[in-house]
Nucleic acid binder design. Sequence first.
DNA 1: GTCTATAAATAGATAGAC
DNA 2: GTCTATCTATTTATAGAC
Lengths: 203, 203
Amino acid sequence: MSTVARPSFKEQMLAAREEAIIQSVNRLLAEKGFDAMTVDEVAAAVGIAKASLYKHFPSKEDLAAAAMVRVMRRAQDFLHTVAEDQPVIDKLKAVVRWMLQVQLAGEMPSLPSQNSSLRATLMSNRDYLDGLMDASDRLGAWIEAGQREGLINPGLPAVAVLYTLYARACDPVVEFLKAGGQHGDDEIVELIVSTCFDGLRAR
Amino acid sequence: MSTVARPSFKEQMLAAREEAIIQSVNRLLAEKGFDAMTVDEVAAAVGIAKASLYKHFPSKEDLAAAAMVRVMRRAQDFLHTVAEDQPVIDKLKAVVRWMLQVQLAGEMPSLPSQNSSLRATLMSNRDYLDGLMDASDRLGAWIEAGQREGLINPGLPAVAVLYTLYARACDPVVEFLKAGGQHGDDEIVELIVSTCFDGLRAR
DNA sequence: GTCTATAAATAGATAGAC
DNA sequence: GTCTATCTATTTATAGAC
């Protein structure tokens, strides 16, 4: 009975437990950010002892990194579902909508502002970097195609467009509008998509 | 000699010291955010003992709130310098440029993501709320005028426009582009102003 | 008001029994 | 692997001398 061919029952249990942990970490990261999140809270949310957490993940940074890798995987999966046979603008809008919906669902983990220990851990994490690179390549190709076709402003550096799209994943306008209570989730999404692609100015 | 009519020498010294403290707090808040900033770091940056800090400000929250009030005051001061006899778009662009420049200078304090102790302190701080309201009123008037004139997209709720402008104060695109090293500060400012008002789409 | 010294609470991480 | 109990360092905040 090979452990490679098919995961044993125990391995499945382990994987399920770790998925539950990462899910809790994900929510806490979205809710309060890395610095304010404590390992005790994670343990309490999962319902296991703190020491048990450390059997699965060697540090708080690795805990958070696992959540970041997970969301990056989800992003990659989504990117692969975006139909290629549609205008570039629609593909990019679909991506922005996805990020906004994840954020509205309280499932978009938020990174610390700058040079922190988590950034260092992430930048040495193969899975995360690979995912980020894959996503950036796909989006970058769409952006450059859009610029050649004259759909995306060719005066903007492609990388600036890419960053502007990424920034929608942590756009504070989402929580502002949500807190205002005047708009439903779908309305918020479309408002931000509109300002992102068409700007504040009248056309 | 009244203490009301003119600040005494000691009072001037006190005010200068507190200004130095708030300036250090401001930089640290911009650099690492409220949660990662420690009172020890503040004391070290100012060059005084931690206990002395607590003689000036009763808690870490009040320390940070003072920095937020200061930047809000600076924003109000700037808003008053914006010439009224120019197109609305130019007035709003000037405001966004100012926020981006403050951020590029490493002087834009960053709030914690959500319901934190700092938020509670700020929401019960008269000076901060007054400043925020004053700024929002001025900007709101400009936005609505712009919409009546057909310069700002009338299909957007004015409050959504307001939040979108505020969000430029903590736009991660700034640090992304800065880290890329491909663009100077002025270029970064104009890129973001462009995407903010004209969007990513070609016109 | 400034300092040194110290409290009191909490953080991340580990020991060792089961 | 999970637990309880504990360690060690750090954090916010104070006491008390000067």
